[in-house]
Amino acid sequence: LVRYRTISKIPQITLNFVDLKGDPFLASPTSDREIIAPKIKERTHNVTEKVTQVLSLGADVLPEYKLQAPRIHRWTILHYSPFKAVWDWLILLLVIYTAVFTPYSAAFLLKETEEGPPATECGYACQPLAVVDLIVDIMFIVDILINFRTTYVNANEEVVSHPGRIAVHYFKGWFLIDMVAAIPFDLLIFGSGSEELIGLLKTARLLRLVRVARKLDRYSEYGAAVLFLLMCTFALIAHWLACIWYAIGNMEQPHMDSRIGWLHNLGDQIGKPYNSSGLGGPSIKDKYVTALYFTFSSLTSVGFGNVSPNTNSEKIFSICVMLIGSLMYASIFGNVSAIIQRLYSGTARYHTQMLRVREFIRFHQIPNPLRQRLEEYFQHAWSYTNGIDMNAVLKGFPECLQADICLHLNRSLLQHCKPFRGATKGCLRALAMKFKTTHAPPGDTLVHAGDLLTALYFISRGSIEILRGDVVVAILGKNDIFGEPLNLYARPGKSNGDVRALTYCDLHKIHR
């Protein structure tokens, strides 16, 4: 019993810090008490220290592992850092350059016999395009090294910054494609005289377009951006097909006994025919423009016929181009109408809503002055909100995010209106959640004399007048207030005048 009563005193000691020596009952000389009392004092002292730490809000209350900052290894790049964003855009520009100039170089340097010394005699450094290609190869190699040090988000939505895990993730992902696209074939085969082989191998750079397509997928929600990307894709495919079309004609031209190829026909049409040795002929500019003209006309199913396939190889390629053109029509131009419709969806919704308003007016036989006010209010409210119901949009977000959005939407009023000066951010967040926005066209009466005042109004834009009878008592403008002081009276009061809008007004109100 003594032991039980001794232990039962522990909660009292913990909360009230009572010393055991003052209790005459606990001072009985028993061996059990002498053993338990020192333990009680020690526990009391420890609990006292913990309570003191909690009340003082000291940093040592938290466990040590929670006080440590997340460790980022040296030379690790955050995937959302500004440097990584700028670097990704730079790589994107280099990939676009590669997609345009690599097929052009591979096709127009394929057994090209233009006048001038061969590239091997001039030297590697004197070729501007080769120098640019070398810079692109170096940048792609540097990009691989950067990807080995860039964080990523795993399946659990955690940012991984450990170098080993980053390397394994990159090896399992895009490393092989990036490595093949970054191989400097110019340096590996330079001086061997195989410019045709170098041009063909350099087309491996186009593998990076797969990554670019995935990154550009984030802009699919913007109709104008999608339309622009589709047109660029169409032009890029036409450019690639033009390079292939020229390569076919250029390879067949020296081996044909009869002059029936499209390059021969082009030379005869523009007065620059090929001679018996295969030299001469149109310039590279004429060849490229004509090839691009043929691919565009074939892809769009126009086909004027002034550039036509004559050999079997050219006919087979033309059939493939027609098939590609039909697929592009289905996948690209078939979506253009939907994209344009999405661009004008706001206008369509406006006309639909206006039609419903006019049908309501016609069905209920609203008189002319009231009908005009109804239409003007709808037009003004639509121009202010673009038909978007803010309350319906915010309803799907958590309250903390709703408060931040409301604070942002009402920031101008909260910053410049005098009653809100000096208020804490928590108070402003709470008030912003209570605001209701209303609009009024010129001549609209917001409050009639004798109406119950259940709200306090803040003028965000425009001006109003307060009338008693036919006498203008006051004219209020931006950041002015009218209405009933909230919670100042037990019952809502009545208006002693009319409140009429002089201009288009936007008002925020808080109800009782």
Rank of each mutant, 00 (worst) to 15 (best):
L67D: 04
L67R: 05
Q68E: 06
R71Q: 12
R74K: 07
T76F: 04
I77D: 01
H79T: 01
S81E: 06
P82A: 12
P82Q: 10
K84H: 01
V86N: 01
D88G: 01
D88L: 01
I91N: 07
L92F: 01
L93M: 10
L94K: 01
I96W: 01
Y97K: 01
T98K: 03
L110V: 14
L110T: 15
K111C: 03
G116H: 11
A119W: 01
E121G: 15
C122N: 01
C126K: 01
C126S: 01
P128M: 07
V131G: 01
I138M: 03
I141M: 05
V142K: 02
I144S: 01
T150S: 10
A167L: 05
A167C: 05
V168S: 09
H169P: 01
H169E: 08
K172I: 04
W174K: 05
W174C: 03
D178G: 01
D178F: 01
D178I: 01
M179F: 12
L187Q: 13
F190S: 13
F190T: 13
G191L: 03
E196I: 11
I198C: 10
I198V: 11
R205I: 01
R205C: 01
L206H: 01
L209D: 01
R211P: 01
V212N: 06
Y219A: 09
Y222E: 04
Y222N: 01
A224M: 11
L227E: 01
C232H: 01
F234Y: 05
F234P: 01
A235F: 07
C243I: 01
I244F: 01
I244S: 01
W245R: 01
A247V: 14
A247T: 05
N250I: 14
M251T: 04
D257R: 08
R259D: 15
G261A: 01
L266M: 03
G267M: 01
Q269A: 11
I270L: 08
I270E: 01
I270W: 03
K272S: 01
K272P: 01
N275G: 03
S277R: 09
S277Q: 09
S283A: 01
I284W: 01
K287Q: 01
Y288A: 01
L292P: 01
T295L: 05
T295P: 01
T295R: 01
F296R: 01
F296P: 01
S298Y: 04
L299Y: 01
T300M: 04
S301G: 14
F304A: 05
N306K: 01
S308P: 01
S313K: 02
L323V: 10
G325V: 01
G325K: 01
Y329H: 15
A330T: 01
S331N: 03
V336Y: 04
I339Y: 03
A348S: 06
A348F: 14
L355S: 14
F360E: 03
F363D: 01
N368K: 12
F378L: 07
W382F: 04
S383R: 07
Y384H: 14
T385D: 07
I388A: 04
N391Q: 14
N391H: 12
A392C: 04
L394T: 03
P398D: 03
D404E: 03
I405E: 02
L409F: 04
N410E: 02
L414G: 03
H416Y: 13
H416A: 08
F420S: 02
G426L: 02
A430S: 11
K436L: 09
T438G: 04
T438H: 08
A440M: 15
G443A: 03
A449H: 12
